[in-house]
C-alpha cells in the first residue's frame, strides 16, 4: 500500500499514551473496547495532565485488559476488586489521579459492593465502566446488565433477570458525576472523561460497547458494525435525564448523556478534617 510507504515513519498519535509494543490487542474485531481506550487516550491528551501521576487500574475480563495497553503506571488486579485496589492507591498517595477502567461484570456484579461503597465514601476516583451486556472473556455468560430477553450461554432460553441500571446505582450510592455514552460517541465520550477527571469525587462514565463475538452472535445481531449502526440509529442524547429512566431494554433506544453532576465532600477531605479535629481534641 503506497500510503504506508510514503509516510511510514509517522508515529501513531497515540504512541505516547499506549503501549504499542503490545498491539495488536486481544479484543475481537468489531469490539468497542478499543474505541473506549481510544477515547480515554484522547481525553488524556486533552487534559495535558502529568501522565506520571496518572494510574490506571483494571479488574478482570475483556475490559480488564485495558490497563495493560495504557502507558501509565497500570495495574491489572483481581476480578471485581479494581475499585478497592484503587482506593488503596488513592489514599496511599492522594496526589495521584486514579482511574478505574473495567467491565460491567467486574464493576457492577462481583465488584458491586466496592462500587457502592466507594461512591458512598466519595473516594476521588474516575470509573469508566465499559458495558457490553455480557461476560465476554469467559465465553458469553449472562451479566447483571444483560437486557431481557437476550440469549447468553448461561441463559440459553433467554434472560429473565431485570438488568441493572448502572447510572442509577451510581447516583443512589452517591457518585458526583454520572454519564453514559456509546462506543460510537467518541468525542463526547472523551469530553465526558475529561469532565469526570476534573471533578473531585467519585465519577462514573458508562460506555455502551458492542460485543460482536458473544452478545451479538447468539442474539443474531450481526457483527460489530451492525451493532454500532444500531447505536447510531437508536441513541438519544438527553442530558440531565432522571436516572430512573435509564434502563436499557433489549434493542430499544439508549438514552445517553450526562445525568448527574453535583458536589459532595470527598473522602480524603473528610478524613483530613477528622484527623485535624482529633488532634485538636
Amino acid at each position: 500500500m503506497e500510503t504506508i510507504n510514503t509516510i511510514q515513519e509517522q508515529k501513531h498519535p497515540m504512541d505516547d499514551l499506549l503501549r504499542m509494543d503490545r498491539i495488536p490487542h486481544i479484543w475481537c474485531p468489531g469490539c468497542g473496547i478499543g474505541n473506549a481506550v481510544s477515547a480515554f487516550a484522547e481525553a488524556l491528551r486533552k487534559l495535558e495532565y502529568d501522565l506520571d501521576k496518572v494510574v490506571v487500574v483494571s479488574g478482570i475480563g475483556c475490559t480488564g485488559r485495558v490497563a495493560g495497553y495504557i502507558k501509565t503506571d497500570s495495574f491489572h488486579t483481581t476480578h471485581g476488586r479494581a475499585i478497592a485496589f484503587a482506593t488503596g492507591i488513592k489514599l496511599g498517595n492522594p496526589d495521584l489521579k486514579v482511574i478505574v477502567i473495567s467491565g460491567d461484570g467486574d464493576l457492577v456484579s462481583i465488584g458491586g459492593n466496592h462500587f457502592v461503597h466507594a461512591a458512598r465514601r466519595n473516594i476521588d476516583l474516575t470509573v469508566i465502566c465499559v458495558n457490553n451486556f455480557i461476560y465476554a472473556m469467559t465465553g458469553g455468560q449472562v451479566a447483571p446488565t444483560t437486557p431481557i430477553p437476550a440469549y447468553t450461554t448461561t441463559s440459553p432460553f433467554g434472560n429473565f433477570e431485570a438488568p441493572a441500571n448502572v447510572p442509577q446505582l451510581a447516583e443512589a450510592a452517591g457518585a458526583v458525576y454520572v454519564a453514559r455514552w456509546t462506543a460510537l460517541h467518541m468525542r463526547r465520550l472523551a469530553d465526558s472523561i475529561v469532565e469526570a477527571f476534573n471533578r473531585p469525587g467519585f465519577s462514573v462514565v458508562e460506555v455502551i460497547s458492542p460485543c460482536a463475538m458473544y452478545y451479538s452472535r447468539i442474539n443474531k445481531l450481526g457483527d460489530g458494525l451492525d451493532m454500532m449502526q444500531f447505536y447510531y440509529n437508536n441513541s438519544i442524547i438527553r442530558h440531565g435525564e432522571s436516572t430512573d429512566n435509564l434502563n436499557i431494554d433489549y434493542q430499544k433506544e439508549i438514552i445517553v448523556g450526562k445525568f448527574v453532576d453535583r458536589e459532595r465532600p470527598a473522602f480524603s477531605e473528610s478524613l483530613n478534617e477528622w484527623l485535624r479535629k482529633d488532634q485538636v481534641e
Binding site: H79, G105, I110, Y135, M137, T138, G139, Q141, T153, T154, P156
Partner: peptide, 11 residues
C-alpha cells in the same frame, strides 16, 4: 459465577 475454564460446566 463464570470463570474460565469452568464455564462450560455451568453452561
Amino acid at each position: 459465577y463464570p470463570i474460565t475454564p469452568s464455564t462450560e460446566a455451568a453452561e
